[in-house]
Design a binder for these strands. Structure first.
Length: 510
DNA sequence: TTCCGACAGTGGGGTCGCAAT
DNA sequence: ATTGCGACCCCACTATCGGAA
């Protein structure tokens, strides 16, 4: 199959806003692709590469060679290029990669170049990723979408599932099993403002568990072999020896466990996320690192224990199996209750001990891998500050033409100036985007066509955020974590905004 | 007819490893 | 030694579609 066929389908998908129309376009193409190229087609049209990543980003794709006039490139040919690019590592590799990239884009027409560029930068933006592709695979293969979804749960990689469905239909999909050593897409949580609200949503008794601020891990054990995977299914076994050792001490030798790894201080309180994150990401001198920043692991779910797959069992049964397989000191603290007051007290205790919040879980829900199901609901506390808009950046995609991303500052009473604490684009409705764009252009102190439009620091905006973290990027040495807009404060003047000292008081000391 | 679940898009800060400078 | 880039850790929120109620 030719790349231009995919590029055209992608354009058609992008131009129809109806999901059923997108699905029809994708299914039509999947019906035409041969078995050798099915995996590539599914990958490209859901915005992924068979190679996962190849070390090429937006910066590398700034300057492209002239496009070709006639489209001749096949999927197999493109795939071969990407394999060779990924294989280029070591000194001098950048020049070699550049040459291969030029060659690759040199065989592409203008439309194909655009498609490849967006594919390689992970910004396909056609309004269809895994969710829509699952339906398209179902439609093209004749298999029920629930079967496609289930196979994806167990295999964790949609291109492989799509190729199997197109090849062998529902029978081949049913052949996918949970395999120890191969990761499963982890279940995700929705959120609620309070434990009481979360309990109401679930209705009746629920499990309330501490939410630890670390890195999500899925640990597999088969015999004496342990593998550890992250949320995006990357293998980090070598980076977390403490976790490997902990799993090897367990009596069962056939396990798949879901949990969180984090660095604790000697007093048992958690280190800031940055410390845990840095430790987990380190691949060099791990034995030295573990002495300085030891990791602890806490499990909260079991997908397999003692030779039995548990994915389809309700939460309470999976947890019973977990508790039987893992000693109490490796379990995430958990309280089963229907009482909102008890739940809120448990939440408060988690916070008192320095943790992030809680996750409220329905006892009846099976493990909905890869989905943000209503079975898990996270609850975290929320800080707010009134900050001043210092500048705004022009948006992209559906936000093109709007000033979107706000630069936020706190008041420095000593100088009367403002100290930038970060940016946010979250929480804005289309109406608010329209309004603020007008305001910023009115207040602009520099050219309005610059990427960043600086404005007179007059508008006060109420910002919600999860916490304050250390920053080497911003002048105050602090940055907001997960900042989002709640509302503008036309009733407040910039001189009445919150101060740097207020922000500093929120940051954990040490 | 209205409601609501699921999805995609739009970006945020921080850290590490690697190649180039 | 420093810098820039890519990848990935954590992520919140709104708009939209289409099936459920």
């Amino acid at each position: 199959m030719l790349l231009i066929d995919l590029a055209r389908t992608s354009s058609a998908v992008a131009s129809d806003s109806a999901r059923l129309a997108k699905i029809a376009h994708l299914a039509e193409l999947l019906g035409r692709v041969g078995p050798d190229e099915a995996e590539i087609a599914v990958a490209y049209l859901s915005g992924e590469l068979p190679q996962r990543q190849i070390g090429v980003g937006w910066r590398t794709l700034q300057d492209l060679p002239d496009p070709r006039q006639v489209a001749t490139a096949t999927l197999t040919q493109i795939d071969s290029f990407l394999q060779r690019i990924k294989a280029q590592t070591g000194a001098g590799s950048q020049a070699a990669r550049r040459a291969l990239l030029d060659e690759l884009f040199g065989v592409a027409t203008r439309q194909e170049q655009s498609f490849l560029q967006r594919l390689l930068t992970g910004e396909l933006r056609q309004g269809a990723l895994d969710g829509v592709m699952i339906e398209a695979i179902a439609k093209a293969s004749g298999a029920p979408s629930a079967e496609v979804r289930r196979a994806l749960t167990l295999r964790g990689w949609l291109p492989a599932v799509g190729a199997a469905a197109l090849r062998g239909g529902v029978e081949e999909l049913r052949a996918f099993k949970l395999e120890v050593g191969r990761p499963v897409a982890p279940m995700l949580a929705q959120s609620a403002p309070t434990v009481t609200a979360a309990l109401e949503k679930i209705g009746g008794a629920a499990a309330v568990e501490w939410k630890l601020d670390g890195v999500r891990v899925q640990a597999h054990r088969s015999g004496d072999r342990v593998s550890v995977f992250t949320r995006t299914l990357d293998d980090i076994t070598g980076q977390v020896p403490e976790l490997v050792e902990a799993v090897l001490t367990l009596p069962s030798n056939d396990l798949v466990l879901d949990g969180e790894v984090l660095a604790l201080r000697p007093d048992g309180r958690p280190e800031p996320f940055q410390i845990t994150s840095g430790r987990v990401a380190s691949r060099t001198d791990v034995e030295v690192q573990r002495k300085a920043v030891p990791l602890s692991v806490f499990f909260f779910d079991a997908l397999r224990a003692d030779g039995a797959d548990l994915l389809d069992l309700p939460d309470e049964e999976r947890h019973a199996a977990l508790a039987a397989a893992v000693p109490a000191e490796l379990l995430t603290p958990r309280l089963v209750t229907a009482d909102a007051e008890d739940g809120e007290a448990f939440f408060a205790e988690a916070l008192r001990r320095g943790h992030e919040g809680v996750v409220v879980k329905s006892p009846q829900t099976p493990y909905a891998a890869g989905r943000r199901g209503a079975g898990w609901i996270k609850v975290k506390p929320r800080h707010t500050l009134d900050l001043v808009v210092l500048a705004a950046e022009w948006g992209s995609g559906r936000r093109r033409g709007w000033l979107s991303n706000l630069h936020l500052g706190a008041l420095d009473p000593e100088t009367g100036g403002f100290v930038m604490l970060g940016k946010t684009f979250k929480g804005l409705t289309d109406e608010l985007l329209t309004w603020q764009t007008e305001q910023f252009l009115r207040l602009a102190t520099g050219p309005a066509d610059d990427w960043v439009v600086t404005v007179k620091p007059e508008l006060v905006v109420e910002i919600a955020f999860d916490g304050v973290q250390r920053s080497s990027r911003y002048p105050g040495g602090m940055a907001l974590r997960f900042a989002r807009v709640l509302r503008y404060r036309p009733d407040k003047r910039a001189e009445e905004a919150d101060t740097v000292a207020t922000v500093r008081a929120i940051m954990p000391q040490s």
